[in-house]
C-alpha cells in the first residue's frame, strides 16, 4: 500500500507548487499507475518557451523501481528518440534510487534538455548532427520546439508539417541551400530530402563533388 500513499503524496506536492513550471496529473482518476507530466523547456536553449509532455507509467515496485517515462512531445535531442520519444537517462535506469520522485525526475529531464550527452546517444542521427554542426542542430531543435512544443502545438502536431514549403527540410535539419541546389538540377524535393536523410547528409557543399555525386547517384536510382 505504500506505493499508493507515496504516489498520492507526490501528486499533492507537485500540485501545491504553484510556480507551474512542472505539472503532474493522472491520466484517469481510477488508475494511479499512469500519469502525464509536463515541464517548461529550459531558458536560453533551443527548447525555451516549449512545454514538453511526458508519459509516465509507474511500475508495481515503485518507488524501488524507476517510473517508465517517454516524451509525448516530439523533441530533437541526442538523448531522446526523435521517433518514439524514448529517453536515455541514467536515473530512469540503474541510477534510480527510491528517494527520487516523479517531480525530481521531471526536473532531471529538464536539465537533460539543457545539457545533452551526445557521447551516449539514444538517437544516433541527432547526436551526429549535434557533434558535426552545433548551429544546425540548434536551429532544428528550435524549429521542433516551435512546431511541436509551443503553446498551441497540441493540435498542430499532425498535419501542419507540409503546409509551408521548406518545413520538411528544416524538420530534418537539412540545409535549405543544398536542397535548392539539387532542385535546380531537376530532382523532386521530397525525393531529395528522403535521399539526404537516408545517407545522413545535412548539408552538401558544392566544393565536395564526391558527396554530391553520391547523392545524385542515389537520386537517379
Amino acid at each position: 500500500m505504500s506505493r499508493v500513499k507515496r504516489i498520492l503524496k507526490e501528486l499533492e506536492d507537485v500540485q501545491k507548487d504553484t510556480s507551474a513550471s512542472i505539472t503532474l496529473v493522472l491520466v484517469s482518476e481510477s488508475d494511479l499507475s499512469h500519469l502525464t507530466g509536463t515541464f517548461l523547456g529550459p531558458p536560453d536553449t533551443p527548447y525555451a518557451n516549449g512545454r514538453f509532455q511526458v508519459d509516465i507509467h509507474i511500475p508495481n515496485e515503485y518507488p524501488f523501481k524507476p517510473p517508465q517515462m517517454k516524451f509525448d512531445t516530439k523533441v530533437y535531442h541526442p538523448n531522446i528518440s526523435s521517433v518514439t520519444g524514448a529517453i536515455c537517462l541514467d536515473i530512469l535506469k540503474d541510477a534510480w534510487t527510491p528517494i527520487l520522485t516523479l517531480k525530481s525526475s521531471l526536473i532531471s529531464l529538464q536539465s537533460l534538455l539543457q545539457s545533452p550527452e551526445p557521447s551516449d546517444p539514444q538517437d544516433a542521427e541527432v547526436a551526429k548532427h549535434y557533434l558535426s554542426d552545433l548551429a544546425g542542430f540548434q536551429k532544428t531543435a528550435k524549429y521542433w520546439t516551435e512546431i511541436y512544443a509551443s503553446a498551441d502545438a497540441g493540435k498542430k502536431n499532425g498535419g501542419s508539417d507540409s503546409s509551408k514549403d521548406g518545413d520538411d527540410a528544416k524538420l530534418y535539419g537539412i540545409d535549405e541551400a543544398t536542397v535548392g541546389n539539387f532542385q535546380n538540377m531537376g530532382f523532386d524535393r521530397a525525393k531529395i530530402i528522403e535521399v539526404l536523410r537516408r545517407l545522413g547528409f545535412k548539408k552538401v557543399e558544392s566544393g565536395e563533388p564526391r558527396t554530391e555525386n553520391k547523392v545524385i547517384e542515389e537520386l537517379l536510382k
Binding site: S2, K5, R6, K9, P63, P98, I99
Partner: peptide, 12 residues
C-alpha cells in the same frame, strides 16, 4: 509508538 518516524520512501 506515540511519536513514530515518517519514512520518505514509503510515506508511512
Amino acid at each position: 509508538k506515540t511519536n513514530p518516524f515518517s519514512c520518505f520512501i514509503c510515506c508511512d
